[in-house]
Design a protein around this nucleic acid. Sequence first.
DNA 1: GAAGTCAATTCCGATAAACGGAACAAGATG
DNA 2: CATCTTGTTCCGTTTATCGGAATTGACTTC
Lengths: 256, 256
Amino acid sequence: MANPEDTAGAADARLVGSDRVLALLIELARRPEGASLDDLAVALNSAKSTVHRALGSLTRSGLATRESLGRYAVGDEFLRLAFEYQESRPEAARVMPALRQLAERFGEIAHYAVLEGGDVVYRAKVDPAAGSIRLTSYIGGRNPARATAMGKAILAHHLSTTAEAVQWAADHPVEQRTPHTLTSDAEWAADLARVRERGFAVDDQENEPGINCIAVRVVTPSGEGAVSVSALAYRTPLSTLIDCVDEVRAVAASII
Amino acid sequence: MANPEDTAGAADARLVGSDRVLALLIELARRPEGASLDDLAVALNSAKSTVHRALGSLTRSGLATRESLGRYAVGDEFLRLAFEYQESRPEAARVMPALRQLAERFGEIAHYAVLEGGDVVYRAKVDPAAGSIRLTSYIGGRNPARATAMGKAILAHHLSTTAEAVQWAADHPVEQRTPHTLTSDAEWAADLARVRERGFAVDDQENEPGINCIAVRVVTPSGEGAVSVSALAYRTPLSTLIDCVDEVRAVAASII
DNA sequence: GAAGTCAATTCCGATAAACGGAACAAGATG
DNA sequence: CATCTTGTTCCGTTTATCGGAATTGACTTC
């Protein structure tokens, strides 16, 4: 991949000790096909022997493994920890049945997310059975709250006046992700008012081209969040989702 | 300074540097509820200040986060890395559609696993829509190959004679996990012969009480593995699964 | 709002562990 | 058999880590 690293941004800064081991773990997780020791040494800008020692630590704890000569990869233990953690979360267990119903009913992807700062963080997800097209959303992933139905569904309950909504928008600028993204603070605040009025939020290809979404806010004992159905615009137009909002609401209400 | 604690059990004697940071990450992942700094310091048998520094490393890379005062937890980034990695694996993408079909058809859990040493390692999984009862299987998790249908389905193709099967069994002893576990090497080898003959393997509550399972071997460009349907015995008796083996085979054959 | 409690953070000198360049071994390749 | 790639070990120097204790901060209670 000719992709200059974005997140790590550490290609320059001198990593030491534990930070390097963690950077190595993250680097490994970015490579589903695995990588050789030299590749990793280059990526981390460190000596081979250092990376070798770091790989030793990771291997010892099961977080990394050597699949074959020249192919180090993330270990089973890493995945086990993450998946067990996820399935042990009470909130995930609570919303999964509802998400399964939604995914099956619409044949599209259902999500559960919470608000964190200016982003929504996905906490659970169900792909439809027929789903062949892959959406680039992952559990633990983020999207700007402003440009998503889930974000708006949650925020509408906290920003009760236009002034507050405009202020929040000003504090959380958003990039023009698609031609439909509402970058104007005033327009966005107006959209939020409609959300408050109708009791649900939509995202008309504001976050990703060709993808629209409907969401309603839910409150669980673990806190507040939102459930949504994200659909391919050409297959399930937004109007279809809106027509069925009562079904979505009913399923969401079934979350304890 | 004789430090007379080589505490028994999980926490090893003396963790240093990176190993401690990784141990901390693993400890955090074991606690969906989160933990305070002091709790973690006790669990790792290290000084608070040391754990504090380690938490700093983890937080900096997004693998840990402080949810509130006294509650450190695994960070979103940890989950994102694991889930993105999993969904990027070609083999997972290949088998998921088949697993979804199986889970929907039987209303039970469908798995894909590969053989690693004497264990099967789960690589993909689909829960049924109606699924309320939680099976304790996680992606990245393991079970003894001897006591599982998937393990037997794979091994039957590699141990072509009774002698080989007995030898393999002797090399990989298994504990009596349930009353049905075949701990006798000879009996197990006989069972394996039946697998070879019929072209599919079953697990009649050998691994977990009340759970039976049917599995067939599959070969993909990424290697060999097995797909299975695991069912609650009282809901879907083994005979039902066996009656439908042709369906299972057909779905498995659809995996490219 | 002051006292009390629990959690997090900072300080610091001694010690031990990490660093990395380079040489060496082991597998693959043809 | 020659050659490449990948992985592993060695070792002197340096620098980060360790942990006990004291300090600050956060939240609760009276």
